[in-house]
Simulated scan of single mutants.
Amino acid sequence: MKKITVLPTWCFRDEAGNPLDVQLLRLLGAVHRRGKLTQAAEDVGISYRHAWNVLRQGNAFFGVALVELKRGRGAQLTPLGDKLLWAEQRAVARLGPQLESLGSELNLAIAREQQGAVSVLRLHASHGFAVELLPRHLTALPLDLQYCSPHESLAALDRGSCDVAGFHLPRGAVGERIRASYHERLNPREHRVIGFITRTQGLMVAPNNPLGIEGVASLALEGVRFVNRQASSGTRSLLDGLLSEAGVASTAIRGFEVE
């Protein structure tokens, strides 16, 4: 059965309504990966000449160059080109889970129209790489996958809105405290907890760890800047628990409020 995939797409227009070639961002991404315009054009599936035209149009549209070409040194993005690519990556990261959920709903509606009543596994879970791969491997029955926070997933299970709820459970004392917050949503007579995936989490730092960050306590050191996960995520619950164990106040961490 054919399936719908929903992807975000940029649309640039000037004051007169003139559009910019939609291939520009794909070309910028390929330039960033390959470092050569010839190879970038090949990745995008366009000719070298057309790639030049796309770049010229983009340069004229924004009034500054988006790619810097140097003889013998290949191609690299200018600051604005890099910022445009960053904006696209950020949009995809933020919208991706919601669009996947929308695609799941549309595919389910189509399947019901084509096949009538069909058995469906309704899964509500926090977005993750393993969960994202499930639709590709689950072929026995259609999967209605909706992305939401762990607490929202368990609330949906509690009211019968889904069949399976995905949630995170750290090991150790932090996990026991988080388990207690899930307790009111889990009924031993009706629910069974099944381990699905185990992952190791940590702090992502600059190459060679120049600030010497050794753990969550290091986040409060002078000169350290931090970017957080959203408050509803399982990773955030884990971090909050680890900070409490370490006796580190979130107000002491520069950038804690930045998600």
Score class of each variant (00 low, 15 high):
L102Q: 08
C148Y: 00
L145V: 04
V120H: 12
A111Y: 02
A111Q: 12
G96R: 08
P97R: 04
H151D: 10
D82M: 07
H137V: 14
H124N: 09
T139F: 10
S101Y: 09
L106Q: 08
A109P: 00
G160P: 07
H137T: 13
P150S: 10
L133Y: 07
H137F: 14
C148L: 12
C148H: 06
F129E: 13
D158K: 15
V92E: 11
G160V: 06
P150I: 03
R90P: 00
P150V: 02
A140F: 15
E105D: 13
G116W: 01
E152K: 15
V118C: 08
R94Y: 04
A93I: 05
G103N: 03
D144P: 05
A156M: 05
L141C: 14
H127D: 12
P97Y: 00
V92T: 10
E113C: 02
C162T: 06
I110A: 12
R112S: 02
A93E: 15
D144F: 12
D82W: 04
S153W: 07
D158C: 14
R94A: 12
H137P: 06
P150W: 05
L106H: 05
E88P: 04
E105A: 12
S161P: 01
E132P: 00
G103F: 02
L99S: 00
C162K: 05
L154I: 01
L133R: 15
G103I: 03
L157M: 06
C162G: 07
A156F: 00
A140Y: 15
H127P: 14
P150N: 07
L138V: 09
L133S: 15
D82R: 15
L99A: 01
D82F: 03
A125I: 02
E100S: 10
Y147Q: 02
L121M: 14
L102K: 01
P97L: 00
F129T: 13
A155M: 05
G160S: 04
S104R: 09
P142K: 05
D163P: 03
S149R: 03
L108Q: 05
S153F: 10
Q89I: 00
H124T: 04
L157Q: 08
H127W: 15
L121D: 08
A125T: 07
E100A: 13
V92I: 10
L106N: 06
L80T: 11
R112L: 02
D82L: 11
P150D: 06
L157N: 06
